[in-house]
Design a protein around this nucleic acid. Structure first.
Lengths: 209, 209
DNA sequence: CAATCAATTACCCGTTTGGGTGATATTTTA
DNA sequence: TAAAATATCACCCAAACGGGTAATTGATTG
């Protein structure tokens, strides 16, 4: 059974190159090429391809939005971004939208074929460059993790509860102390983390930001 | 110039297998093997290896803690986790701690050699299985993202600023409206997201929790 | 075109929060 | 052991927040 691949790509030359190499494979076939987002959004669902190669930077729509909408409607189809545009925000948006893989156009066609196979098997093909960005995204949180090391055990517990959305009073009840104690702890937390309100403290705690 | 590799692995057989294949490479050498965490923590810094292959599940210490401490002291050394233990929390903790790659012991030795090369070049080698987990970590946030779709553009902007820690007043100034307008928007945001305070709204916004 | 929704402004009210100061007992550390 | 850090409680005050109601304008949609 062939892997049915659809291509959404507005660069006709690149799209054709992809189609050629895909059709050349024994176990794949290119069942459709879309050169704009609107067509793809309308017709992809009925086609039921196994894998969709999706550019991000289309003239009319964002490939990310298309993926976001279609992953709902086509749970058995795998979307692989294949794009030259690759700032961090785009990468993470695409992954959040439901893309299973992320390639850059600089990758060799052989690598793209391999990625289609891997995606179809349930894997998560990523270019080296993308994998690195993803990893760095995790490592950025290290700075925040370290600043938390300044906090005492009690302070970390309080911050944890605060991050869950509890009021001072609720935290006090939970820990069986008075609200003033909690206020004191929170004051100390703010001082140590060099913040001045709940939100900022929780942002640091959540290693986001 | 050879790539100097150190191995931290308490399975002596596996460690020896790694050493053999590494020393077999023309451009690599295994400069040390550590069979427990304590030794590794004490002696790795002076050795200045280029790449460290690190097991997570050591008897005495956690490989993650070791990575966390040593990445501070050895910024030019690259750490690659190579472990059979692979629940999600361990994976993300390791990446946060500063690991540049994450392999599973099921990977072939050839793949591990390739990963060492890639890590040394500044890449982010990951097993397929790990890459998939990492991707899924992003996709889990999709549910929350959808609830945000209920919000109007203005409301999303307000929530964004709120999440950054701005006060109502600051948001009002930034958007050149009165604080009462912002309060109204935020009330609407809370209603739509079914929350009752900043923290809960921001938790939803941050696709955490 | 009418109805609905979005965005904006305004006011009131009570609660929550953040900042400051100060005190005491326990624990940790040098 | 002495000093420092931690955890606890208390009080005051001003700013910020959350909830409610109400009204106007502009855009969207059926």
């Amino acid at each position: 059974m062939n892997i049915r691949v659809a291509i959404v790509e507005d660069d006709k030359n690149y799209s054709q190159a992809l189609k050629n190499i895909i059709d050349f494979q024994e176990d794949m076939e290119c069942v459709a090429q879309f050169f704009n987002g609107k067509n793809a959004l309308q017709k992809l669902e009925a086609l039921e391809p196994d894998v969709v190669l999706m550019d991000i930077q289309l003239q009319d729509l964002s490939g990310i939005d298309i993926v976001f909408k279609l992953t709902e409607l086509m749970p058995s189809t795998t979307f692989v971004m294949c794009t030259s545009f690759e700032n961090d925000e785009k990468i993470f948006s695409a992954l959040r939208a439901g893309a299973s893989g992320y390639l850059v156009k600089g990758d060799s066609l052989a690598k793209i074929i391999q990625a289609i196979l891997e995606a179809h098997k349930g894997g998560a093909p990523m270019s080296f460059a993308i994998a690195k960005r993803v990893l760095q995204h995790f490592q950025e949180s290290k700075v925040q993790v370290q600043s938390l090391a300044l906090l005492t055990v009690t302070e970390k517990e309080v911050l944890e509860l605060l991050a869950q959305g509890l009021l001072y009073k609720e935290i006090a009840d939970k820990k069986s102390v008075t609200i003033d104690t909690i206020k004191k702890h929170i004051g100390n937390i703010y001082r140590k983390l060099q913040v001045s309100n709940k939100i900022e403290a929780i942002n640091k705690f959540n290693h986001k930001n």
